[in-house]
Simulated assay, not measured.
Amino acid sequence: MIRRRQSDRDHLVRIGDREFLTRGLDQSFWTDAFHNSMSVSWPLFFGGFALYFLTMNLLFAFLFWLGGDCIANARSDSFVDLFFFSIETLATVGYGDMHPQNIYGHSIATMEIFTGMSTLAVFTGLIFARFSRPRARVIFADSMTFAQHDGQATLMARFANARRSSVNEARAELWFVYTDTTAEGVGFRRFRHLALKQPRNPIFVFSWTLFHEVDENSPIFGHGREQLEAMDAYFMVVFVGLDDVSGQNVNVRQGYSWRDVKFGEVFADILSVGENGVPQIDYRRLSATEPQETDGED
C-alpha cells in the first residue's frame, strides 16, 4: 500500500483575510469536483477544460492510430489528421472529409461521440452555474472604528453598494470571534453575536454604517486594544439581501482583526452636496477616518 506523505495533505486555506494550515485532509480535485469547479478562478477553470480537451483528443487520436487505416481520407501515418478528426468527432461537428471506414473506426468514434456529448453537458452546466450564481458587489471600509456615538461608546463598521441597483430587505450581522480559556485550561475559539442598532435596511442603495453600542450587555464591554490583542479578537460582518435585478439572495462577509480597529476615530462623511445642489457620494472616502473631536473611550 502506498502511503501519502503528511506534507502532501497540508493545504493553506484562506478564510476572509486570515490563513490557516490544514493537515491530514484529502483535498484532491476529485474529492469534491463540483465545488472545486465552482470555486476556482475563471482562468484556471478554462485552463483545466482546455487541458482536458487536449488530453482526450490525444488519447482518441492514439486509439485511431492503433487501428491503422480505419479513417477514410486521412493521410497514411499522419497523427495530425487523426488528431483533428478526433476534435471534430469529440465536438460532434463532423465536416465529412474524414470518416470511419471499418468496425474498429466506428467503435472508437462511437465512444468518442458519447464522451463528447457527456463532456459538453457537464461543462455547459458548470459554465451556466458559474455565470448565474448571484454575487453581491459590496465594498467594505479597510477598518472599523471605536468611538462615541449618540453619547455611547460604539463599535462601527461601514460598507457600500458598488452596483447601481438596490438590494432589498438587506440584513447585517456583526460577530465577535475570540480565544477563550475553559475552566480546564484549554484554549477555545468562541463566537459571540454583537447586537446592532439597525440590523435591517429595506433598500440598500449607497452606503451603510453598522453601530454596536458597547454597554454593560456587550461582550466587548470594558475591552480596550490590549484586551482585544490578548484575546486575538476578530470581528466578522455578514451581509445578506435580495438583489433587485436577479431576484436572488446575495451574501458576502468581511473580517477585521483587532489591529483593524481604530480607537477614538470615526468614519469621515462621504455624502456632500455639489454646486448644482445634487447630493453626491464619494466612494473613494469609504475607508477614510478622522479623530473624534470629543474624548473617546476604549
Rank of each mutant, 00 (worst) to 15 (best):
S287Y: 08
E290H: 02
E213K: 04
Y283V: 14
M236P: 00
D77E: 12
H223D: 12
R158W: 09
W258S: 03
M98Y: 05
P134R: 04
F146W: 09
Q148D: 12
T115D: 06
Y283R: 14
I203E: 11
Q254G: 00
Q101I: 12
V261Y: 02
L155H: 05
H35A: 13
V122P: 02
W42K: 02
E19T: 15
M1V: 12
D69S: 11
A268K: 02
V93Y: 13
F83M: 10
D260Q: 09
F176A: 06
T289H: 08
V238K: 11
R133D: 13
R259A: 11
R9F: 14
P279E: 01
F191Y: 15
L271Y: 10
I220Y: 03
R135M: 11
F53R: 01
D298W: 12
D10E: 14
Y178D: 12
G105T: 14
D295H: 11
E216P: 01
E293W: 09
G224C: 11
V138L: 09
V250A: 02
F123L: 09
V238S: 12
F62S: 09
S78R: 02
F221N: 12
L66F: 10
V250T: 04
T154G: 04
S118K: 02
T294Q: 12
V214N: 02
F146D: 15
F221T: 06
R285C: 05
T182V: 03
R133F: 13
T124C: 08
I113K: 04
W258G: 00
P100L: 06
F85G: 06
F85D: 06
R14K: 14
A61G: 10
T110C: 07
W42D: 05
G151W: 02
V278K: 09
F64T: 05
R133L: 11
R3M: 13
G96L: 09
F146S: 12
R14S: 13
G277R: 10
Y104R: 04
F146M: 14
W42L: 08
V278L: 11
V122Y: 12
M144I: 12
V186S: 08
R23Y: 05
V205W: 05
L90G: 03
G296D: 13
F85T: 05
G222P: 00
V261K: 04
